[in-house]
Design a protein around this nucleic acid. Structure first.
Length: 644
RNA sequence: GCCGGCGUAGCUCAGUGGUAGAGCAGCUGAUUCGUAAUCAGCAGGUCGAGGGUUCGACUCCCCCCGCCGGCUCCA
């Protein structure tokens, strides 16, 4: 008789055949009402599973629907219901896989015709019917042979492929209302635990994620423990839509793309350009302080340069075709590194010169497949805030550390405070020596440790030429965007035969570091727009303050005041149109201008302005323009914190 | 690139084979106004491009371009 230790540390003995539901019943009658699974010795199993097979001492914990694990069980079960619904409507559909993902699940189907929005509505309705039926999910264990036979005879070729990939031993199947699917489980006791779900989308998806395979039809859905959470989720989606940089970019007249120009090529309008200029000025100032030399390099170069660098071989699919210049092939640059290397090589370098840090806001062009393009976040022409650091091996650790701290300082200056950090280690195919890889990985790791940030390791995800750190920034609603990257490179110094003279006068090979802090200005700007929902902080705002006259009697006074603002470098405008004040305020609010300065008869008489902060986030009394300038002066610079 | 959807005025969107519509923005005029929309009038369109079907195409078909949601990719 196994002994069961419950989550509250009480314990009791039960016969082996007892199912968990009955094990919990005497002590956890109320909790059982909302329980969807059991965690047995750390593993999730069905509530209707038996106690047998878990040893003499069994730790058992009820998993409720509203727990993280509980809702995952639910999502998986909804996926099965979806598969049942699809099969009920399209009997010839073949099922692929139906896993849970963040907030929901998807299921892939091989159907004769791709789904239409009408099909999806039908499927969702059918799911409702099934769920209302209150069907139990029942588990059966069969031999691999039986499973292959069952799915094989039903023509479920994808399931057969999945079963063949499984190890030997028994295969588990789950059935609800007559529909059986291959599944590890566990599942809900019954469909009546499905309280809130919604189909959120559908699209083609390659079988097993390989574009050589057939494209199946994928349906996405979400499920939550209750209606409220589903509504919250849908509300979050709305919020994300409201912040979409493509929508805001148009509304705030920040940037555009244009059919006549081509996909993925960005036009920066004056307002967006102003923000970019502020970013660039800040970037240049900080880099000068940080020991970087800022350089400029050409947009095209001879093809041979890219053959030497290896880009032509490795990334040819993403490079634009060569152009003929007096019989020589040139290509538009996909990278800045070869140019920086040539600058380095323009002199003989001494060990005393190192590290040498070349930074450039370098515009590069890469061919991205049309389907990959996305607003400013994925484009074909973009400006990297690139830098290449040439150093001695003994400088590696300190240099990586300083780069990483610099990165965090810059990102924090723009209001990003939460990051997801990844260390990508040696992939299967790599260049350079094992010893160098280990050294570089250790150096990256040490730098990460020194920041105190949490990070995860992506084993084997490094680039072929070296390990890297990627920093993804998290925006205000928790979505993360890859921007910063710090990469060690063992490849290019070899390929270009980069060298320096060491203290013995002997030729030595420097180590090279690539790094981008914002990644691309386009992407970073897109992230900023979404992060601030278009309401840039004062130091970044395209227009920082707008003067609003009440009547045209005030025009001269407001005009003189505008001059004072401009004289101290505040980006200010004057709205002296013959419109009502409320109208002007509304317009300034929609343009998300940080400060409105009302100049009416009263202010004019007192030599003041009446400031109104956007969204009235702070209440402000009338003040002189000099007082206002002093008031905003502290907002003129970003808050960056310390560079360590 | 692949699967699906979409493309009508500067913007947001109506318009299912028979003379292209609204609101906002724009222009003109009136209004001189106090913290998120003053009123009136006017103008604005090769309905994404090209081809086809038809007496007739914004509408149906083909092809191309662009955008959106995914898949794949992202040095």
């Amino acid at each position: 008789m196994p002994k069961v230790i419950f989550q509250d540390n009480t314990e009791d003995n039960f016969a082996e055949g007892t199912v968990f539901f009955d094990v919990f019943k005497p002590r956890f009658k109320d909790a059982l009402k909302n329980a969807v699974a059991v965690k047995v010795n750390g593993k999730l199993v069905d509530l209707r599973g038996a106690l047998a097979g878990y040893g003499d001492i069994v730790r058992a914990e009820l998993i409720s629907l509203d727990s993280k694990e509980g809702i995952e069980v639910c999502r998986h079960s909804v996926a099965h219901v979806m598969a049942e619904a699809v099969r009920a409507i399209y009997p010839s559909a073949k099922c692929g896989i139906g896993p849970t993902i963040e907030d929901g699940f998807y299921y892939d189907f091989d159907v004769e015709k791709p789904f239409t929005p009408e099909d999806i509505a039908k499927i969702e309705a059918k799911m409702g019917e099934i769920i209302n039926g209150g069907h139990a999910f029942t588990r059966t264990a069969v031999s691999k042979e039986t499973a292959l036979e069952t799915f094989g005879s039903a023509g479920e070729k994808y399931k057969v492929e999945l079963i063949n990939a499984l190890g030997d031993g028994e295969i588990t199947l789950y059935t609800q209302s007559g529909f059986t699917d291959l599944c590890r489980g566990p599942h809900l006791p019954s469909t009546r635990f499905i309280k809130a779900y919604k189909i959120t989308g559908f699209a083609g998806a390659y079988w097993r994620g390989d574009e050589k395979n057939k494209m199946l039809q994928r349906i996405y859905g979400v499920a939550f423990a209750n209606k409220k959470e589903l509504e919250d989720y849908l509300h979050r989606l709305e919020e994300a839509k409201r912040r979409d940089h493509r929508k805001l970019g148009k509304e705030l007249d920040l940037f555009s793309t244009n059919e006549a120009i081509g996909s993925g090529l960005v036009l920066w309008h004056p307002a967006g350009s102003t923000v970019r200029r502020v970013i660039e000025d800040f970037w240049k100032k900080e880099h000068a302080k940080g020991g970087y030399d800022i350089v400029y390099t050409p947009h095209v170069a001879m093809l041979d340069l890219w053959k030497t660098s290896g880009h032509w071989d490795f990334y040819r699919d993403n490079l634009y075709s060569p152009m003929d210049v007096e019989g020589q092939d040139y290509i538009v640059k996909p990278m800045n590194c070869p140019f920086h290397i040539q600058i380095y090589k323009s002199h003989l370098r001494s060990y005393r010169d190192l590290p040498i840090r070349y930074a450039e806001l370098g515009t590069v062009y890469r061919y991205e497949r049309s389907g990959a393009l996305h607003g400013l976040l994925r484009v074909r022409g973009f400006t990297q805030d690139d830098a290449h650091i040439f150093m001695r091996p003994d400088q590696l650790t300190a240099e990586i550390k300083s780069v990483l701290h610099f990165t965090l300082y810059i990102l924090r200056s723009f209001g990003f405070n939460e990051f997801d950090v990844y260390l990508s280690t040696r992939p299967e195919k790599y260049v350079g020596t094992l010893a160098n890889w280990e050294k570089a990985e250790a150096a990256l790791k040490a730098a990460l440790e020194s920041t105190g940030l949490k990070y995860s390791i992506d084993p084997g995800e490094g680039v072929f030429y070296g390990p890297k750190i990627d920093v993804k920034i998290k925006d205000i609603i928790g979505r993360s965007w890859q921007c910063s990257t710090v990469q060690v490179d063992f490849n290019l110094p070899e390929r270009f035969d980069v060298s320096y003279r060491d203290e013995h006068g002997v030729e030595a090979r420097p180590i090279m570091l690539h790094r981008a802090l914002m990644g691309s200005l386009e992407r970073f700007f897109g992230c900023l727009v979404e992060h601030y929902a278009g309401a840039f902080p004062f130091w970044l705002a395209p227009v920082q303050a707008v003067l609003l006259t009440v009547t045209d009697r005030n025009n001269a006074y407001a005009g003189a005041t505008l001059k004072k603002l401009k004289a101290v470098g505040i980006r200010a405008e004057l709205d002296d149109r013959n419109e009502k004040l409320g109208f002007k305020i509304r317009e300034a609010e929609l343009r998300k201008i940080p400060y409105m300065l009302v100049a009416g008869d009263k202010e004019e008489a007192d030599g003041m302005v009446s400031p109104r902060a956007k969204d009235r986030e702070v209440k402000l009394e009338s003040m002189t323009i000099e007082e206002f300038i002093a008031f905003v002066s502290k907002e003129g610079e970003p808050e960056g914190g310390e560079i360590l």
